[in-house]
């Protein structure tokens, strides 16, 4: 058929050759980030440390963040990665605690349940290709037994006596493997604090996103305790003699 085409001034035309916008995509980069969380088991329960910095790229943007959350009576959550995704997770856990409280059955949320909940949210969001950009450490005392678990944006989960996220996995884990692994139930609170501070000091020296203002947190039979921010004693006198690593 010979096309006879004419246009009225008001005819709506479909755009020709619309450029492909591709498939739907979601924000896939973290904005305000927290660096390593270091955690391990000791005689009285579990202990964790994380600094107070919320980085905006390489800018030390927010210097008074709290990267811990107490969940119920016996559980502690430590977060690294995107801080807004951590806030989202905190809201989800608060909702969970509220609905559990509303059950009014005298039951309280145990550490393993919190861990499973966090893990399932992480795995579910990975399956939606819309991950929460975090690595979480869940610690606590569940039925009298210390529990320490990890969950990240790929839904990968594991339990171990010593766990560290981010740079901590490279710098703190070797220290913890030597000083904690296999003897967690011999470690006193004083020794645990020393080990934790040593790990955090190494991270402070070598991780450019670390910050010398940090919190320590522990879960014991007495419950959850998150410390006020404190600074580590450092010694930079040998710094000018360090050779290599681009320095």
């Amino acid at each position: 058929m010979d096309p006879i085409t004419f246009e009225l001034p008001h005819t709506l035309k479909a755009p020709k050759a619309a450029p492909s916008l591709g498939p739907t995509s979601r924000t896939m980069q973290p904005m305000i980030t927290g660096t390593s969380v270091v955690a391990f088991k000791y005689k009285d329960g579990i202990m964790m440390a994380a600094d107070c910095l919320g980085s905006y790229g390489s800018l030390a943007r927010f210097r008074n963040e709290n990267r811990f959350m107490q969940v119920g009576a016996t559980t502690l959550l430590g977060a690294s990665g995107d801080m807004s995704d951590f806030q989202f997770m905190k809201h989800k856990l608060e909702d969970l605690l509220t609905s559990e409280y509303d059950m009014d059955d005298g039951q309280s949320l145990g550490t393993k349940s919190v861990y499973k909940y966090v893990s399932n949210i992480m795995y579910g969001r990975r399956n939606k290709f819309d991950p929460l950009w975090n690595a979480y450490v869940v610690g606590g005392i569940d039925n009298g037994e210390a529990f320490l678990g990890y969950a990240n944006l790929f839904g990968t989960t594991y339990q171990s006596d010593c766990i560290a996220t981010g740079f901590g996995a490279h710098l703190a884990i070797p220290i913890l493997r030597r000083r904690v692994e296999g003897r967690a139930d011999e470690i006193s609170e004083e020794e645990a604090v020393r080990i934790l501070d040593d790990c955090m000091r190494v991270l402070l020296y070598r991780d450019c996103r670390a910050f010398n203002k940090q919190r320590r947190a522990k879960v014991t039979a007495q419950g959850v305790e998150i410390s006020e921010p404190y600074a580590l004693e450092t010694d930079w006198s040998i710094a000018d003699r360090v050779v290599g690593y681009g320095a």
């Binding site: 085409t5 050759a17 450029p19 492909s20 591709g22 498939p23 290709f129 790929f154 990968t156």
Partner: peptide, 29 residues
Amino acid sequence: MEFGLQLNERPMEAPREAHGHNHWNPYVD
């Protein structure tokens, strides 16, 4: 409305390869 191929028009732009590239990979080993 248009029918048939207008010879003075350039063929439609080939869709750009957007799939698979710059995409978050959910799989880990």
